[in-house]
Design a protein around this nucleic acid. Structure first.
Length: 723
DNA sequence: GTGCGACGATTTTAG
DNA sequence: ATCGTCGCAC
């Protein structure tokens, strides 16, 4: 068989990894070394060359995005749809297992997934209900503590506090929380993993069945696995399975949420894999790579790996010392403007920072300059209040015992069921050991008619009525009816015109999603109803933070969320002691190494140009602070950096941008000319005062009647001539 | 039961 | 500085 199409596009190390004989492999894949490509080609190789059935392959990732990218790329490569192959996130696959074997797993058939916000509310409620001191045992910390236990595979009863009262407290809360979840028929994210682990551990026949079904396991981002995930892989692989693990210890930046980079070492010890290093980098220019290598070399305990490239040295790494954070933002945006003027796209530029709060100033300046931008992070679609409200109704219809959902909607929109009524219900429910819904129906059936019961009965009747058509209607119709009966959309009116409008739009978007939802083959196999599948998908795939992807925007995000991405032009902002490395990583956990890895990740995002910025003065929590440059800047070898002096900012190194940015003239502005009256969607009407640049890069200065004088890039501003 | 002012904390985040 | 939560007043 001709296998050249699977091997020709690869370099030697990649080829070795892809074509390795079945067995355990540890692929140490440096940044930009083609790790996804190797995973995809490996799957194709197994199917086409080793004649492994897709049914025998399980590929695990951390994000839905990575999972769907892998599936699509495999299908593109093989030119056939790959049916029956399990590709998904740890949580998604665990969920599928639990649905298929809910009885063995000790879960009700219609069990539902709660997200971390639901989990927090549930814990807060529980702590208050039990009269536990919230100052000593805050719900946030309880949540963190419980999830950490679950990530380590530990159940409440197995915790031993050795008489430590604090731990005893947490344990009590954990125990009560487990009980609440059981009563309500809900599982949190960590529970999906823990329970899937227990399911296989405690059911030998089932374990053997899955070991036989999946002799080939492929794991992406191995350095991000936590204890329970590693245990799950180990168990599923068994003595016979073949595990193809891909990871990079230098890019482990999620230790704080339970990821154990040691798992890479454990894997090497436990599985005795053949280890292959992918060290050729296809992303960054030579100087950028050398700089990143120099930084990460300061860490110890590395497995050892040195990236190299065929690419030219390229530009030096620029370091800009800003006077303060405003100067920093002005400089960065100025550089981006030059980049755009030089004929490059805005979406080739990314501004990376340590904490989200830093995005603010950049946004302001970008807004002022009329450069479109996109901020990653923030509220995702299915986390928005109105979406969660609507979904809570659906959750309640599907499983009335879901107390989280009950509490969320019982008085949303307000129907006169206040804290008083609810706390009575809670007491009733707790005493009888039943759900709030059961307590509520019980109260209503008692026939006497106090005020509490009138409003409560209206709610109970409403839910009961909606439940009647539960399985006979499409989800979209069901949702539409529900929004209609509850008048939920109007509920947001009191928040003001604009907000209410956005919320209504989001609800419409949810309706569209419900209308177009189709039960997947896998979900059908696992025995899910369309509604249950829809709700599970909403929980497991919370969606993008921003609905519409803008065409061509500057990208703003934290260094963490930049992992896996790449950009020709990268700015790393706020490289100051205390901010990056962050104060708390220096003093508390003492984990500087993870911060340094984060720095390495950030730097290796850049393809052509990398600019590191720090401010000498920064406003933090309202007060002015003098800031020392980050130690990471000191770790940067002198011969690789170019210090950009304030005031000479624009002089930089970019000859191309310099040449074209002052080309002046008014050619290429097409329908626009000096004195032309124009209108802009946001700024209203104004008159063109100045034109500079040409074609797609032309900028105009417009004096707006309302908004004042502004420079805009013609190709973005979407100006319309008036009269 | 709802609305406003004080108070406190404030790294990173997928599922 | 700013945002979310809490307590108190209406």
């Amino acid at each position: 068989m001709d296998v050249s199409h699977l091997l020709d596009p690869l370099n030697d190390a990649q080829r070795e990894a892809v074509s390795a004989p079945p067995g355990n492999q540890m692929i140490l894949a440096g940044a930009g070394s083609g790790k996804t490509r190797v995973l995809v080609y490996r799957i194709a190789w197994l199917i086409q060359v080793e004649h492994v059935s897709p049914l025998s392959i399980m590929a695990v990732t951390f994000t839905n995005k990575a999972a769907s990218e892998m599936r699509h790329r495999v299908q593109d490569l093989l030119q056939i749809p790959v049916r029956g192959m399990w590709v998904g996130t740890f949580h998604g696959l665990a969920h599928r297992l639990l649905r298929s074997h809910h009885e063995l797993a000790g879960l009700p058939e219609g069990f539902q997934i709660i997200d971390s916000d639901d989990q927090y509310r549930l814990l807060r409620r529980l702590i208050r209900e039990r009269g536990i001191d919230e100052n000593q045992w805050p719900a946030r910390q309880a949540q963190w503590w419980i999830n950490a236990r679950k990530d380590e595979g530990q159940r409440a009863h197995a915790v031993n506090g050795f008489g430590n009262p604090a731990i005893d407290g947490w344990q009590q809360i954990y125990q009560a929380y487990e009980e609440q979840c059981r009563l309500a028929g809900v599982v949190d994210f960590a529970e999906l993993l823990l329970r899937a682990h227990e399911l296989l551990r405690d059911n030998e026949a089932l374990l053997q069945q899955y070991r036989q079904r999946f002799p080939h396991l492929l794991i992406d981002e191995f350095q991000d696995t936590n204890a329970i995930q590693y245990g799950w892989i180990r168990m599923l692989a068994g003595p016979q399975g073949h595990v193809f693990a891909v990871g990079d210890d230098d890019q482990s930046i999620y230790g704080w949420r339970g990821a154990r980079v040691e798992n890479v070492q454990f894997f090497v010890n436990d599985f005795k894999p053949h280890t292959i290093r992918l060290e050729q980098n296809y992303r960054s220019s030579g100087n950028i790579l050398a700089a990143a290598n120099a930084i990460i070399a300061n860490n110890d305990d590395r497995l050892g790996k040195k990236l190299w490239t065929d690419a030219a040295d390229g530009e030096l790494v620029q370091v800009y010392s800003a006077y303060n954070e405003e100067d920093e933002a002005e400089f960065v945006i100025g550089q981006i403007q030059l980049w755009i003027d030089g004929g490059r796209r805005a979406d080739e530029a990314a501004i990376l920072y340590r904490s989200n709060a830093q995005s603010r100033l950049f946004e302001q300046v970008l807004m002022r300059e009329g450069i479109p931008y996109r901020v990653y992070g923030g509220l995702r679609f299915f986390e928005r209040a109105e979406i969660k409200d609507a979904l809570a109704y659906l959750h309640l219809l599907s499983n009335p015992d879901n107390d989280s959902a009950f509490e969320r909607v019982v008085n949303t929109p307000n129907r006169g069921i206040g804290e008083r009524t609810i706390s009575q219900l809670r007491t009733l429910a707790a005493d009888a050991g039943v759900s709030l819904w059961q307590a509520a129906t019980e109260v209503c059936s008692r026939g006497d008619s106090q005020r509490m019961q009138v409003s409560l009965r209206r709610f109970v009747d409403l839910i009961a009525e909606l439940r009647e058509t539960l399985n006979s209607e499409e989800i979209g119709l069901q949702l539409r009816k529900l929004l209609d009966c509850t008048d939920l959309p109007s509920h947001y009116d009191k928040e003001g015109q604009e907000k209410a409008e956005t919320r209504r739009e989001n609800l419409n978007e949810l309706l569209r999603a419900a209308d177009s939802f189709r039960l997947s083959y896998e979900d059908e196999q696992a025995g899910l109803s369309p509604l249950a599948a829809f709700l599970a998908q909403a929980a497991l795939e919370a969606g993008e933070a921003q609905g519409e992807e803008w065409d061509d925007c500057v990208q703003l995000m934290t260094m963490h969320s930049a992992k896996g991405l790449e950009f020709p032009l990268v700015f790393v902002a706020g490289m100051e002691e205390g901010l990056f490395p962050h104060q708390r990583s220096v003093e508390e956990s003492g984990d500087l190494q993870e911060e340094r890895r984060l720095c390495y990740v950030a730097m290796t995002r850049a393809r052509e140009r990398l600019v590191l910025c720090h401010a000498e003065m920064r406003r933090i929590y309202g007060g002015q602070n003098l800031c020392r440059p980050s130690r990471f800047l000191r770790e940067l070898p002198g011969e690789l950096k170019h210090e950009v002096r304030p005031g000479l900012a624009a002089a930089g190194q970019n000859t191309q941008a310099d040449a074209s940015s002052h080309s002046g003239g008014n050619a290429g502005s097409g329908q626009f000319e000096l004195g032309q009256r124009v209108s802009h969607q946001k700024f209203g009407e104004g008159v063109i005062l100045n034109i500079e640049g040409r074609d797609a890069h032309a900028r105009v200065q417009v004096n707006f009647e309302q908004a004042g004088c502004k420079w805009l890039v013609l190709s973005y501003a979407n100006l319309h001539p008036v009269r």
